[in-house]
């Protein structure tokens, strides 16, 4: 883990997309201990930005610099692949090297259940935790509040208020309750 305040990833003039740019000219600096939030309407390219930070083929222009040896964790928006899979919550955490320490008590009790036996909110928070509590330097969180009830959202909000000091977080969300302009760097993306 890097010291708080260390710049871990920097993008300058970044354009991302597939055949044509979805988003152009984005400047982004991800700093250890800090949350950067991308806001914008559906289809503006926010999720593609997150993917492009790890996948060079999605970068159509601009420059991305990463700290040497950077480990990038990515929580995708959709929970895919868990249906009909005999995998327990504890095994999910082990796959990314995430620790169960700090997991909310209402979820710690479910660690031995199969993922496809969990509720949508339990599964979503566990997916989030398997990325957030793993030894990644940069966490790309795409709509981590999906499916969470009030209790889950509160736990997520608390975590975003005090993210691990050595990790930089880039958050994509439509949930205003997760946005705290006083604590987070907010980037608004137009459609």
């Amino acid at each position: 883990m890097k010291p708080p305040g260390t710049v871990l990833l920097e993008a300058l003039g970044l354009s991302v997309g597939y055949d044509r740019p979805l988003l152009k000219g984005l400047d982004l600096q991800l700093v250890a201990g800090r949350v950067t939030t991308l806001l914008g309407p559906n289809g503006a390219g926010k999720s593609t930005v997150l993917r492009a930070l790890g996948e060079a083929r999605l970068r159509l222009a601009g420059r991305v610099w990463q700290a040497p040896g950077l480990r990038l964790g990515h929580l995708a928006q959709a929970a895919e692949g868990q249906a009909e899979l005999p995998l327990s919550g504890r095994e999910l955490l082990a796959l990314t090297g995430a620790t169960a320490d700090g997991l909310p008590p209402w979820l710690a009790d479910c660690l031995d259940a199969r993922l496809d036996r969990l509720s949508g909110g339990q599964l979503q928070y566990l997916r989030f935790w398997s990325i957030a509590a793993a030894p990644f330097d940069v966490l790309c969180l795409d709509e981590p509040g999906n499916n969470l009830d009030a209790r889950g959202l509160a736990a997520l909000r608390d975590w975003l208020h005090t993210p691990p000091a050595g990790q930089a977080v880039v958050l994509v969300t439509h949930d205003d309750s997760l946005v705290d302009t006083a604590r987070q760097s907010v980037i608004r993306i137009a459609s």
Binding site: R51, G54, G73, H74, L75, A76, E80, G81, Q82, L85, L87, E91, L92, A94, L95, T96, L115, R127, S130, I131, C140, D142
Partner: peptide, 14 residues
């Protein structure tokens, strides 16, 4: 083992 399972549950990790 880990890479094979991780690709199923976290495809965004590659």
């Amino acid at each position: 083992h880990r890479a094979l399972l991780r690709a199923r549950v976290h495809p965004a990790l590659g």
